[in-house]
Nucleic acid binder design. Sequence first.
RNA 1: CGGGGCGUAGCGCAGCCUGGUUAGCGCACCAGACUGGGGGUCUGGGAGUCGGUGGUUCAAAUCCACUCGCCCCGACCA
Length: 589
Amino acid sequence: MRYSKALIPTLKEVPADATMPSHKLLLRGGFIRRVAAGIYEYLPLGWRVLRRVAEVVREEMDRAGAQEILMPAVLPAELWRETGRWDTFGPQLLRMKDRKGAEYCVGPTHEEVVTDLARREIRSYRELPRNLYQIQTKFRDEPRPRAGLIRGREFVMKDAYSFDADEEKAKLSYRAMVVAYARIFARLGFDFRVVEADSGAMGGTSSHEFQILCDAGEDAIVACESCSYAANVEAALGERVDGEPSVTRTSIPQPVAVDTPGKHTIEDVSAFLGVPSRDLIKTLIYVWGDQSVAVLVRGDDDVNEVKLARAVGAGEVFLAADAEVQRLTGAPVGFAGPVGLRARILADRHVADVRDGVTGANQADRHLRHVLPGRDFQAEFLDLRAVRSGDACPRCQKPLRVFHGIEAGHTFVLGTHYSNKMKATFLGEDGQSRPLVMGCYGIGVSRLVAAAIEQHNDEKGMRWPVPIAPYTVELLAIGADPAIGVRTDGIYHALQSAGIDTLYDEREERPGVKFMDADLLGLPFRVVVGKKGNAGGWAEFRRRGETQDQQVPFEQLEAFLRREIAVANAATHAAAAEAEQSVLKRLGL
RNA sequence: CGGGGCGUAGCGCAGCCUGGUUAGCGCACCAGACUGGGGGUCUGGGAGUCGGUGGUUCAAAUCCACUCGCCCCGACCA
């Protein structure tokens, strides 16, 4: 592509509403433009990247035996009523009516539609298994779209659905998808982790998230630094290894109340009384339905709400509102404590190790010192704490770390949840009618474009991995001498016919402008022809992110670039093969 | 939905508190000249319903009310 003919509106200044690197750079590089909250246009470069990401996804899905289809974006309400989701999906579902008043929605996901397709077209076990996928624009009316392409309302997603005759076979379909996903993310050049997810309300037996590691990620995941263990923080296991209580003596004075005016956080109290936070006992009031419970953890720990919900047999638990805390403890938030509290009390088992603790006194501005669990209060001791960085890995005992991740893919075994509701059945070998056993598998394709930048950028701009770069080579003509233009024209045509995607910057711009734009766009390979090189018979080659130029004679340039690309492609495929092996080992499949 | 903030040229902003020439500045854009290896210099130019509606006033970008949109934090969420 000739730069002077392209629509690449780069920006020097960052639009004020972008905060994340990927969002800023996509805007600055002229890859996307915002049309409405969470809705974007893909300009030529952004669209090229999206297509390349989609192409890798396609190749691996096809390789895994899935077949691409395209379902409608606008879906009739009646299908959603069959599963009840027309009512339960909530305001995220963008609804509308046609001229006759019939109701529709813009598809946020396609279980209903694909299940409808399957029940009409799949009748016999002989037609199983099947895996159908699409790459399509979806819409979810998010309460708060943010971060550009990472959390838009309109986004491009690859969603696949598998249909099997029984659970056993569904597992095989699931496994094939997990392998395909590992290969996809590896080929796209991501540092990612496969994490166990809380399978939650979907009713599934198995669920994994594919998390792309980066500080700006919205999800917290726990991963081992030496083995492949990784899990969503909600589902994570880990043993605390540090920070035993500072007091170990056995004779502890009776509790005594002290004034702690306005000190209602752990840090405040710890600093005010000069007691390390690990000797404090944090008391939190949780509610669900019409029930409530006091939950104790050590001052340096947090509550894992998923563990808590499981322990009390609730679907979900919530921190009590301030008024509720006041009613139950008789004190404002920040001064609750277990001593003398009339409530069900659950405690993380590490609380039992505290010998000389500090707790709230259930009075405003007062705390109790010298609290001894078991003597001064009774509680049910359970595992309730959230895993922290530094805990020991449940598999290998090495330290765990908390990472932030962007959820890029999610795999579920759905079982017969949808097929039961929608009566999607097939005839088995024995002539019996049975519900199809389903799985569903999503990849946020447009989100991946942004995620790639989150992992590959520097202060100058983006750094595209070869497999998804909008162009592979940026060719710069530097200098006003017409002879240089003649030379670069020739190189451009040669690269074109060699099938090397080249962005040819032949604009009448000053060198600085061209170099800055080239760094911003971040194509993997840069080829520069200037006055000296043109006279001397060589071009300058540089990989994005490196600082050294290499002189390459004009006649060798094409072969040189081919080799660079071949090396990158080989590395990509090696990474895919390695990811495949490691995910299989990881899941014990 | 709770908290905070912002809407003035394509982008980034000033002006608003304390109402009063023709609404400014930088970047970008157009024309010309010089320049030509890391966002260069100069000259000249085009571009604005000051988010919208209503009100107060002799007079509103500026004050008031309502409203729409957007961003950030939280809640929620694949």
